[in-house]
Amino acid sequence: MTATRTQSEPGTSRPPRRLGDRVFAGTARGAGIAILVILAGVAAFLVAEAIPALTAPAEEVPGGRGLVGYIAPLIFGTLLAAIIALIVATPLAVAIALFITHYAPRRLAQGLGYVVDLLAAIPSIVYGFWGITWLAPRLVPFYRWLEDNLGFIPLFAGPTSATGRTMMTAGLVLAIMILPIVSAISREVFLQVPTLHTEAALALGATRWEMIRMAVIPYGKSGVIGGSMLGLGRALGETLAVTLVLSVSGGITFNLISSGNPATIAANIALQFPESTGIAVNTLIASGLALFVITLAVNMLARWIVNRRADFSGAN
């Protein structure tokens, strides 16, 4: 950047600048601004199309209980599925990241990293296919067992769904889908742990686990938190896998293994949108706006946590 330092203000036109330079810089700047415009456009057009639903009388909104009554169960379902996914995926992802960075043989480590990344390459709809035909039927005996032995907990009250297409299954599929992103970010921060810290711990006689607990985990903690928040954002917006796996009946319930489940916002849009007309479309767009706001908040929080960590690591 030494050469550009002399041009303190790239925007102001200084006499010797050539036409090509100005055109090119202008195009590049325009592209950057276009991104801001697109994002503003996403918000603006969604709001514009959602307004009819916001102002419509309650009985015209599908379901007849007004916009809030329509969206509330969907938000509940979205959060429930995403939180199950997060609870399952985070420990697993941290373990995978530790395995690749500290346990696997050096020569295999990078290859194993690629293999985990392959999970991210599989399209959402294929996860849905797999969840509905392979995973769901295999989970039914497990759900029966949960109902028989842990049925006193409201989460597992049952009656068990015969198809296995339950909230729990949807959460597990989502967990697998967010594994790669959470483990990739955890892996990255675990690799950044200063070698001096780990070697010092080992030199003091720590076993490998003690070294990880004392040197690696404290260093990587905020990275893991940020990564799992990004995973949460991904899980909130996942559409097709949930659409296919979840058997939807509406309503708010904490029962994770029965056949009556609340839908998620994204899955509900995918199910209803192709056949909807009129005010129903505006209602769906309003629910999409709610999803947009929720994921935006989660993602911004995640980025903030990850970036704050970056500031700290520079100081260390």
């Binding site: 991104i35 994002l39 954002g233």
Partner: peptide, 9 residues
């Protein structure tokens, strides 16, 4: 932020 936009949105 854009990276995190849900595909359905």
């Amino acid at each position: 932020v854009m990276t995190g936009i849900p595909s359905i949105v």
